[in-house]
Structures are given as C-alpha cells and as structure tokens.
Design a protein around this nucleic acid. Structure first.
Lengths: 131, 131
DNA sequence: CGGGATCCTGGGCGATACTG
DNA sequence: CAGTATCGCCCAGGATCCCG
C-alpha cells in the first residue's frame, strides 16, 4: 500500500478542499496553464482562453493574485498595460495540477468506454422496467 | 523546462476540464478519499463524510460509477446492502489527486500569508481612496 | 438500508454598459 | 487597454418526503 496523503489525518481534507475550490472553478486552471507559457497581458489571456468573459478573467486573476499564485505588474502608461505571470508558488501548483491533467489524458478512453457501457446498461434496465 | 502536460496541444485542456469537473465538485474527491481506505457501505460513507446529504452522496456515487471510478455491488437481501469500492482506475485517480492534496498541505501557510498580505494592502489602498 | 422524486434557494457566471 | 458596476439567469446542491 503506497503512501496516501488523504489517510494521514482527516483535518487535512477540509483544508485541501479550499485549494480544490480555488483550482477547481471554471477558469483558474486554464489561466494558470496559459501563464505557464510565460508572462502575458490581460487581453492576450482573454483572447487565448476561449469563452471567458472579461469579468471572469478579472475575478479569476484577482483570486489567484490574492493567493500568491499569480503576480500582477502595472505599468503606469497610456494606454494601460498590465502583465501577469506565475509566481514560483504558482509554478509548483502548475506542476502538481499537471499530474491530474496527465491522468485525465491517459485515461480518457477508459472513462468514455465506462460511460458508454454504463449508459447502455441503464438504458436496457429502463426498457425492461417499462415493459 | 520540465515537461508540461498543458503545453502539448490545446485540445487536451478542454478534455482535462471534464476531469476536473468530475473531481472538482464538492464531494467526489472526499468520496474517493474515503473509499481509498477500503470498501464501504452507503450509510458508512454518509456517516464519515461530514455534511453530505444522502441525495448528493447518491448523485456523486452514480457519477463516479458511470465513469468507472467506483464499483457498486448490490446484495439482494433485506434490508438492502450495497458496497462501494474504488476500481483499479479509481485507485490511480486517487494517486494523481494526492499530488494536489500534497501540494495544498505543503503550501497552505504560504497561501494564508499571501492572502493576509493582499488583504491588508488592498485595505490600505481603499483607505487612501476614501480620503 | 439505500435510495428516488420534488421543491427551493444561493451564488457562480454571463451580458451589457460605463470609466481612467 | 484593462478594468468596474449592475442586472439577471441558471443550476448545483440542501431539505424534505416517500418507497421497496
């Protein structure tokens, strides 16, 4: 049995949920992923992250900045210019999250198959029940 | 520069979001964590996962079962008995997720400090603005 | 015991308009 | 360009009741 962070002590889970709430929302991970490519400006992020509204980009970046995951650099020029980048802490988070993304890519086929399997099985049961 | 699953090709991210939607919801990860300790019954899970409603436990377990992460075994007896356990696939997910939980535990202090820092800084700015 | 079915609310999120 | 402010929708998830 390999070491398992979950088992050590229960209270860690509730704190861990805070982090997953941070990373598990709709946009944070994608923002972190984009910044993993290097420093980017606001509009650049908005252009590259498909479907995000400027409001949610702002909100997400603020949250990540507050947690010390993203750094925000304002240049006092006209028109305004703001650079965003991962902090060292943010970079370590990207690495940790990459493990999950790697898992996802490695097992997507299995999951799709499991879903199809489950759906057909339940469909058969429903058919039986209505007969 | 270490390998980064995010950079390889963009389409992987959208699929990756599916997985984070699965694991990033309010309860899935905790259910997986509990089942990491071994096979458990419905009521057992409900008792050990603090705050979960039976509805959400059912919904969560169904979703995980559909994705092939959790197995469900029904014993046709009275009163009913149903056992839940991680599948091999689920066990690998638990390992991958543990990386994130480990990161969370390792950096909680940094994050708390960053938040406190951010909050006091913005509080000072607000004070200046209202003067 | 292990669920379904139904109802209801909070807040996450999008759309739009305005600003330095 | 990089936001802020406001409004409103939608649905995840909680509460409750019932059932085999």
């Amino acid at each position: 049995m390999e070491p398992n962070a979950f088992r050590e002590h229960r209270p860690s889970m509730c704190r861990a949920r805070e982090i997953l709430d941070r990373v598990g929302d709709k946009w944070s991970l994608q923002v972190i992923a984009m910044l993993g490519e290097g420093t980017k400006r606001f509009t650049e992020l908005k252009r590259e992250i498909d479907g995000i509204s400027q409001r949610m980009l702002t909100v997400t970046l603020r949250g990540l900045e507050r947690d010390g995951i993203v750094s925000r650099t304002v240049f006092p020029v006209m028109p305004p210019r703001v650079d965003y980048a991962l902090t060292p802490l943010g970079a370590t988070l990207l690495d940790a999250a990459s493990a999950l993304v790697g898992w996802a890519e490695a097992h997507l086929d299995e999951i799709d198959a499991a879903r199809a399997d489950y759906d057909t099985r339940t469909a058969e049961l429903d058919a039986l029940r209505s007969s």
